[in-house]
Design a protein around this nucleic acid. Sequence first.
RNA 1: UGGCGAGUGGCCUAACGGUAAGGCACCUGACUCUGGAUCAGGGGAUUGAAGGUUCGAAUCCUUCCUCGCCAGCCA
Length: 564
Amino acid sequence: MNVRSPASSERGDFIREIVAADIASGRISAPVTRFPPEPNGYLHIGHAKSICLNFGLAQEFGGRCHLRFDDTNPAKEEQAYIDAIKADVRWLGFDWGEHLYHASDYFEQLYEWALHLVRTGKAYVDDLSADEIRAYRGTLTEPGRNSPWRDRSVEENLDLFERMRQGEFPNGARVLRAKIDMASPNINLRDPVLYRIVHASHPRTGDAWCIYPTYDFAHGQSDAIEGITHSICTLEFEIHRPLYDWLIENLPVPSRPHQYEFARLNLTYTVLSKRVLLRLVTEGRVRGWDDPRMPTISGLRRRGFPAEGIRDFATMIGVAKSDSVVEVEMLEHAVRDVLNRTAPRRFAVLDPLKVVIENYPEGQIEEMEVVNNPEDPSAGTRRVPFSRELWIERDDFMEDPPPKFFRLAPGREVRLRSAYLVTCREAVKDASGRVVELRCTYDPATRGGDAPDGRRPKATLHWLSAGHAVPAEVRLYEHLFTRPDPGADGDLFADLNPASERVLQGCLLEPGLADVPLGQTVQFERLGYFAQDTDSTADHLVFNRTLTLKDTWAKVQAQGRQGA
RNA sequence: UGGCGAGUGGCCUAACGGUAAGGCACCUGACUCUGGAUCAGGGGAUUGAAGGUUCGAAUCCUUCCUCGCCAGCCA
C-alpha cells in the first residue's frame, strides 16, 4: 500500500499544498486541525475520509488535530452519540490526546461575543416568526427586505437578548441576527440567525441555557478559540465562508482560522446521509447503527473491515474539490489487500455435503498440518483433524459438470487441502434425487496433498472432519442497495436489497474458530473473509461475511448464464 | 433566473506552459495445494465545447454548455 509519506517535498492534494505553503511562508509553524462531528448520529465512511484528512494532516506536518463536538442543537444530540463517535475515531487509529472539546464549552464566550456584535451595532434581536423571516429573506433572484426590528437601539437589543437568555420567551419568539446585507446575492449574508431560543436540556450543559448559537456563529469562533489554522469542511459550506470570515473579522477573536472545503465522499451502492441512516435504524430495516450492512464505522467494524483498510482507502481516493462518486469496489480492494496479508486462514463449510472415504480406516483420526497464511510464513501452521467421514461444500460437487468446472465429479480426483487426493466413486441420492452423500476413495500415498508420481488435480477443496466440525450461523452480506445510485428513481427504500443479508444455519467450522476474538477477521479458505459477530455466544456461534474472495469461477458462471 | 464551486479513460486522482501519469474496474497470459494471492501484458482520454494567446495549452484569456451547492431558528 502506498501510504503518503510525511516528506513535505512531494506534492499532495490541494489542502496539503496549502498547508505546506503556509508553513513555507511562515504564516504558521505547524497546522492545527479539527474533526467536528455533530453528535446526532453515528460516524460513517464519509466521516472517515474527513478524519483521515484532518488527523493525517496534523501527523504529517507535525501539528495536532482536535476532536470537537459541534453540540449546538440539543434537540437532536445525545450523549450516546458522543460516546460512540469517540470510540469510532479511536478505533480508526487516531488520537486527539488532550484536545477533546465541545462547542458547548464555549457557550459563555460565544454569548459575550454576541453581545459585542450587539454593542457594535452588528447584531439585533428580531421578533419576526420563522415564516416571516423566510418571507423577508427574498429568493435566489430577488433581494430580501429589512426586518422592521432591524434598527432597534443597542440598549433595547441588549435588554431583549439578555431576557432571551433568561428564558422569558418561548421557542421561536425571537432570534438574534447579524446585521449584514439583506440584498446580498449570497443568502447566507442576509442577516443570518446567530442565536435561537430552544428550551431543551443539553447533553452537557443541561438546563443552563435556553438560547443556543447556530452552526455559523459557533463554528468559526470555536476554531479561533482553539487556534485552528485550517478549518476543513465539505463543499456545501463553501457558500458559508464569507459569513465565516465576516464573523472572524468583526469579533475580537484570539486567532485567525481559515476555512477550506473539499468534496465529501459518495460511494456506489451506498447512502451516506445521517438522516437516511437514522431512518434505516428507527424503521428497523437493519439491526441497528452497527448493522454489518451499514456504512457506519461501527457497522464496518462489526462486518470485519480492518481500520487499516479504511485508512488505505482514504489515501487511495485522495482529496479534491469536484463532486465525485467512488466505486465501492475501491473500498473492497483496500480491505481485501489488508486482509489477504493479515487474516489467518481457516476451514469452514457453509453448505455441507457428506463425504465418506470408503478405504479410510474406520475410527482413525489424523492431524493434518495446515498453513495459517501462505502470505505470511510467520503465521505458522495448525493441526486440523481428518477422518473417514468429512464435509465438503455442496458447490464443490457436480454430478454432471460443465467443461469449465474443475471440482469434484463422479470418477474425478481432487485434492483435499493439506490432506489427501480423493476420487469420487459414487453420488448417493435420496428419494427426491438430491445428492446426500459422496462415496470416495483416497490415495494413502498423497498424505499432505502431494502425489509421489506428480499427479496434480485441477482443484483443491476445503473440508472438515464430520466428528470434529463445530456448528455455526453464518450471515452473508451484500450491498444494502441494489443499484449504484440508490434513490435515483425517487424511492430510496424501494432500492433496498432484499438479499443484503442471508442468514445460514447449520454451517460448520473448523474447531478452534470459536476462540477467534471479536475484531479478528479470518479467511474461510476459498469462501471469503469472516468475522465473529457481536451476537455470537459460546452456545451459538455467529460469523459475518466481511467480503468474498475475488471469484473468477462465479464470473465464468455468470457469463455462461448470460451467454445461454 | 442570482451567487458560489466543479468538469481529465467506466470510476477516483495526478500533471503547476514542455507534449496526458497512477490506482480501482475490465480483458489476456504465466504461476499456484485457495478458480485466492502474485507476476507479465492489453484495451480504453482528440483533458465538457468553441475560439484565442504561445514555438508549445489539461494548465493562460474569452464565450458557451453541463453538473453540484445555497432561499433551516439543521450541521
